[in-house]
Design a binder for these strands. Structure first.
Lengths: 358, 358
DNA sequence: CTGAAAGCGCTTACAG
DNA sequence: CTGAAAGCGCTTACAG
């Protein structure tokens, strides 16, 4: 015989606005007004209602009822399509999320995270959650069905880099043009033999030299566009695919690219700052000095924690992207139209690029 | 005269379950059953309802109405008390959040993030959000009022390392004992002259040598407890306070501690792995070799991206903490009692500790 | 400034 | 297996 649980929660007696009104001797309408402050109530009445609430232990209007009645829940959904720990390994995503929080601040709304929980049997379905709007970050078309359902329900949506389908406003950046800028910078320094380390081309995240097969199976636009930008300047550029955006992966790719002195490029275009930091690490392991022996260009413009170099990189407006998405959502919720935005990245010339050794 | 907006959103005509039912020629109850699948409906009827829904463009029951009626919203609130970018700089927090997502997976609930949006005028108030439960991560007592309101409403709460007030189950780890273990390891190797790099002691995040003033104004238990653990073994230990848990801060603190060869300790106890990585970097800058010239102990047991050393550290169960919180929430929501958990960390002896040079 | 009434859209006992 | 009725707890025109 096992003992009964010591105590159960949720046994709090439900007090409703009606109870409070009755206790205060006013109508429910008046009590409601006293709480919302959105109507004319005499101070005396208001105080009486608040006192009654206090006596009964009433904690304010039930958000569920309020949201049904008002048609708004005060919640904005954010879809990430990865596990929390994977999504937040990417500093750009974190900054974007931060900007988003800022962009919707005026709504006083919370951010409801939709991620892969690791339990395939328990998917939180986007379309049974009480959201006022949804922002998709880096999502694949696999959400098409749910996206469609949300659109039918009139829920405003915005996508940040991804192709969720539907006619959803998109927030994008100039991946190709920006990378081309970085490549041109290298060419203007005199580099002829340049290699690139790319982001994964698809979810399976193969690692190694880029093959036509990998390229034709690509689902990640960012990697493809940045590669195009590099090819605009160096058409036959050698490419090494990383399995993720991390220093560790950059190290591995860097080793693969730099190990053989005979085939060693004089410069590397990394598709992210983390990858660039790894490439620099690999160079240092081999006794190479950056930028004297190897030039390295990154992408993102984040501060890589612990990296001592001032990295030459394409600075993308990560926070602004999120904020723009948030502002678009706010606009749509107020009944206005909202369009996407295509942001521009800037070349920051730091101290990791220089002319090649003669 | 400015032009009208091109198009407004939200103009979708609202289709309700009643419309669908009418269209299918059944009652609302039956239509409801057809969607929820929780009652006996003939296949023929079900199909008719679904077909009607399709024709009318009905995307399924409105989550707001459903949550009012059912008394559950399917949302678990997570309070972080920082900006998104600050909170997610900490790998331990990310892992904890990941574990939490896992722990509540069976609920099929989403995680509603409450963070500082940067806009003080627009605080998302915890107590007007439709949450079924709330998990506080590293929160200060400043939430006491809201916490109380939630308790009055019978909303289950769990705290992970923090002192939100109230009689909320807490998930904690053995900060003091674990650090003591690390210190004992150093002592057993023969170290006499040991210093420590601590986490911030309060929100203002002063940086520099630890003073009695800083210590007495401490609000962050973690830093205090880990310091105590170090003092259990090295009572007069010299302490340098970092302004955050990062490699960069570890570098700074490391430089301060190691620059002067005359006062240089033979070992450093860092209160986080990121700080430890920074201390190692500082040592290497000075031409010191780890562990030959300096032993370094970390805390957390995360993989520091790009760190080449196998760090000696106290491995805390970050993911398990989150999962435990999630499971406690699930239990409470099913009406059972839930207690807190105090987790134990383990000493991992890597390759960054060795006997001091003779 | 206050109250009576309707209704937000759904689900759930309860009959049949 | 299906339907009629009540009600989740609130807010909002509408009268007064």
């Amino acid at each position: 015989m096992s003992p009964e649980p010591a105590a159960t929660t949720g046994a709090v007696p439900r007090v409703t606005l009606a109870d409070v009104a009755a206790h205060a001797g006013v109508s429910a309408s008046t009590a409601s007004l006293a709480f919302s402050g959105s109507g004319p109530v005499s101070d005396a009445t208001k105080e009486r209602v608040l006192a009654a609430a206090d006596e009964l232990g009433y904690a304010g209007p039930d958000p569920r009822a309020r949201s049904l009645r008002r048609g708004r829940s005060g919640i904005v959904g954010v879809v990430l399509e990865e596990r929390v720990r994977a999504a937040f390994l990417d500093p750009v995503k974190i900054q974007t999320l931060d900007g988003l929080a800022e962009g919707i601040a005026s709504l006083g709304a919370g951010l409801l995270l939709f991620t892969d929980s690791g339990d395939p049997a328990a998917p939180v379905s986007l379309d049974t959650a009480p959201v006022d709007a949804v922002v998709l970050i880096g999502c694949s078309p696999k959400f098409f069905r749910q996206v469609e359902a949300l659109q039918r329900r009139g829920i405003p949506m915005v996508a940040i880099e991804g192709a969720p389908g539907g006619d959803i406003p998109e927030i994008t950046i100039d991946n190709r043009e920006a990378t081309r800028l970085g490549a041109e910078h290298l060419r203007s320094l005199g580099h002829e033999d340049v290699a690139t380390v790319t982001l994964p081309f698809e979810a399976s995240r193969a690692r190694g030299p880029l093959t036509p097969e990998i390229e034709s199976a690509a689902t990640v636009d960012t990697a493809v566009e940045r590669l195009r930008g590099a090819r605009d300047v160096y058409p036959g550029i050698r490419a090494q695919v990383a399995a993720a955006s991390s220093i560790e992966e950059g190290l591995e790719a860097g080793r693969a690219l730099l190990a053989d002195a005979a085939t060693r490029p004089t410069a590397v275009i990394a598709q992210s700052d983390l990858l660039a930091a790894g490439v620099i690490g690999a160079a240092e392991e081999l006794g190479l000095e950056v930028p004297r022996d190897l030039s390295v260009v990154g992408f993102d413009g984040i501060r890589v924690d612990g990296l001592q170099h001032d990295l030459t990189t394409l600075v993308q407006p990560s926070v602004a992207k999120g904020r723009a998405a948030g502002e678009a959502v706010v606009r749509m919720l107020s009944g206005q139209a909202a369009a996407g935005t295509d942001f521009t990245s800037e070349l920051h010339v730091g101290e990791t690029t220089a002319p090649p050794r003669a």
